[in-house]
């Protein structure tokens, strides 16, 4: 190792331990530390960098994975629209929300269309009672919708567990 390289190495090490190095500088640092003629004073730094680098994947791991996915995608036949699978849990969620809205709408229409006996103005207590009843009907409709959504949620969780078991079941030793 010549004097210039040793000077550069010292500078890079100072910046590295100050946590000021960029990724390309750290790459240069690793290259310098892997020099077979490295002076003994830098051996602890080399040992440290080597140990830390064992925790790292090879540089192109993500690229290889991405290329593999691309090749899988290219090898697959194009799916037709008819073969798209139904997503039952998602359908259940929307069905539950729609059902709750429909129930509320129907009840509201029935109440609106029911002729109210002619009478004098309602008292405040009667108004309060009617309003409370309307809210109660709305809450019941919501509860029914919520129960349906909970069933859909539970179905989703079960689907996740089944997918995990299907993809990677834990094998007994």
């Amino acid at each position: 190792m010549d004097t210039t390289q040793i000077y550069k190495l010292r500078q890079l090490l100072e910046r590295f331990y100050a946590a000021d190095t960029a990724p390309d500088e750290e790459k240069s640092l690793r290259e310098l530390l892997s020099d077979p003629d490295l002076p003994e004073e830098f051996l602890p730094d080399r040992n440290m960098m080597e140990a830390m680098s064992m925790l790292l994947p090879s540089e192109n791991l993500e690229e290889r994975i991405s290329m593999r996915i691309d090749s899988f995608a290219q090898d697959e036949p194009v799916k037709s629209k008819e073969s798209v699978k139904f997503r039952w849990p998602i359908l259940l969620r929307w069905s539950a929300a729609v059902a709750a809205a429909v129930v509320f709408a129907v009840i509201s229409i029935i109440r609106i269309s029911t002729p109210i006996p002619a009478q004098a103005e309602m008292s405040p207590e009667e108004v309060y009672e009617q309003t409370a009843m309307a809210f109660m009907i709305f809450a019941e409709a919501l509860d029914k919708g919520r129960a349906a959504i909970e069933i859909a949620d539970s179905t989703t969780i079960n689907a996740s567990v089944k997918a995990m078991d299907a993809i990677f079941p834990i094998q007994q030793p």
């Binding site: 994947p57 791991l61 290889r64 994975i65 593999r68 996915i69 899988f72 699978k85 997503r87 849990p89 998602i90 989703t156 689907a159 996740s160 997918a163 299907a166 993809i167 990677f168």
Partner: peptide, 19 residues
Amino acid sequence: VQDVFTRLWEHRDDLELIK
């Protein structure tokens, strides 16, 4: 890691429900 990615890709249609 590569094996897991392959399996995830093969079952990707089942993964849309994963939160």
